[in-house]
Design a protein around this nucleic acid. Structure first.
Length: 273
DNA sequence: TTACAGGTCTTGT
DNA sequence: ACAAGACCTGTA
C-alpha cells in the first residue's frame, strides 16, 4: 500500500477520541501527521495529509487487517446526513467538528481489559498501564521501536499480577478474575461475538468489575454494537446540558454510539489550544 | 497537601 | 430500588 484516499478519517481525532490507547504520535508537521498504530499483532505507521494516507505496509496487510480496523466499509457520510437533517444544532456542531472520527473495529479481548482499567482512572495512567502490560507480556512486533502486541490471556501470568508496577490499583483483582475465567472458558469471547447488543450487555455485566459504562464501551468498541451508548461523567454532563428533557435515542436507532463519539470528542477537545 | 480521574462494588436505608 | 462511601495511584 503506497497512498490511498479516504474520507471521514482523521487519525488525530481518533487518537483523541478515547476509544483507543494504542495510537502513538510519531511525527507532526503543519501539513501532515504520522501515527504508529498497534492492533491484532501488527504494527502500522500511517501518515495523513488531508484525505491522503500513505504507508509502507503491504497491500495484503492493508486489505486483510487495516481496512476493516478503520471500518472503511461503513459510510459515515450517510450518518452525517442523518445528523444534518435532524435540525439538532448541537449535534451538527459536534459532527462538523469531528467528521474524521470513526468507530474502530478493535480486538474484543483488548477492549475488555482496557476498559476495565479505564474505570475511575485518567487517560494518561490508563495508557501507561496498557503499555507496560504489552511490554511485559506481549509478543514483540517491532522491539527495536518498543512495539509489543497486546498479550493474550495465556501470556499473562496472573500469579504475579498484583505487582504494583503496572499501576493498576484495585482493578488488578478484577482483571485477575477475568484472566482465570477466560482460561477456564476459552470460547467465552467467541460466544460473546455471536450475541446481540442486549445479550452481550447482560453477559458482560455478570463479570465482576464490569458495570454499565464499561460494558457499553466493550460493546461499542470491541463488538461494534453501534447502538451502545456509553454514559460516563462527560456524557452525563453533555446530556444534562444539551438535552434536559432527555435524548431521543429512537431517532438515531442503530447509530447512537457514533453520535456519542462525536459528542465526546467535541467536549474533550473543542476549545483547547 | 489535597483533589481528581471516561466507575463499580458494597453496605445501609 | 436507591444513595452514599470506599477504593489504587500518578499527576498537578
Amino acid at each position: 500500500m503506497k497512498t490511498i484516499e479516504i474520507k471521514n478519517l482523521n487519525l488525530k481525532q481518533i487518537a483523541d477520541s478515547g476509544q483507543t490507547f494504542r495510537f502513538k504520535l510519531i511525527d507532526e508537521t503543519p501539513k501532515s501527521i504520522t501515527y504508529g498504530i498497534t492492533a491484532f499483532g501488527k504494527y502500522l505507521e500511517l501518515c495523513q495529509l488531508g484525505n491522503t494516507f500513505s504507508s509502507t505496509c503491504s497491500q495484503e496487510d492493508w486489505d486483510q487487517t487495516w481496512q476493516s480496523y478503520f471500518d472503511l466499509q461503513t459510510d459515515y457520510q450517510k450518518i452525517g446526513q442523518l445528523i444534518l437533517n435532524s435540525g439538532d444544532s448541537y449535534l451538527k456542531e459536534c459532527y462538523e467538528y469531528g467528521q474524521g472520527v470513526r468507530i474502530l473495529r478493535q480486538d474484543l479481548w483488548e477492549m475488555l481489559v482496557s476498559f476495565i482499567i479505564s474505570q475511575n482512572n485518567n487517560i494518561k495512567r490508563i495508557a501507561g498501564s496498557i503499555e507496560k502490560l504489552c511490554q511485559r507480556y506481549g509478543t514483540p512486533i517491532a522491539p527495536e521501536k518498543d512495539i509489543y502486541a497486546f498479550p493474550t490471556p495465556y501470556q499473562i501470568d496472573s500469579a504475579e499480577f498484583f505487582d504494583t508496577s503496572l499501576g493498576l490499583g484495585y482493578r488488578s483483582e478484577y482483571l485477575k478474575n477475568i484472566f482465570e475465567y477466560i482460561k477456564e472458558n476459552p470460547d467465552y469471547l467467541s460466544k460473546l461475538k455471536t450475541m446481540d447488543y442486549e445479550k452481550s450487555m447482560e453477559s458482560l455485566l455478570s463479570l465482576k468489575g464490569v458495570g454499565p459504562k464499561v460494558a457499553n464501551c466493550i460493546c461499542l468498541f470491541g463488538l461494534h454494537h453501534v447502538s451502545a451508548f456509553p454514559i460516563d461523567t462527560h456524557v452525563k454532563q453533555i446530556l444534562s446540558a444539551h438535552y434536559p428533557n432527555g435524548f431521543d435515542f429512537n431517532a438515531y436507532e442503530g447509530v447512537a454510539g457514533i453520535l456519542q463519539q462525536y459528542m465526546f470528542y467535541h467536549k474533550l477537545t473543542a476549545g483547547r489550544k
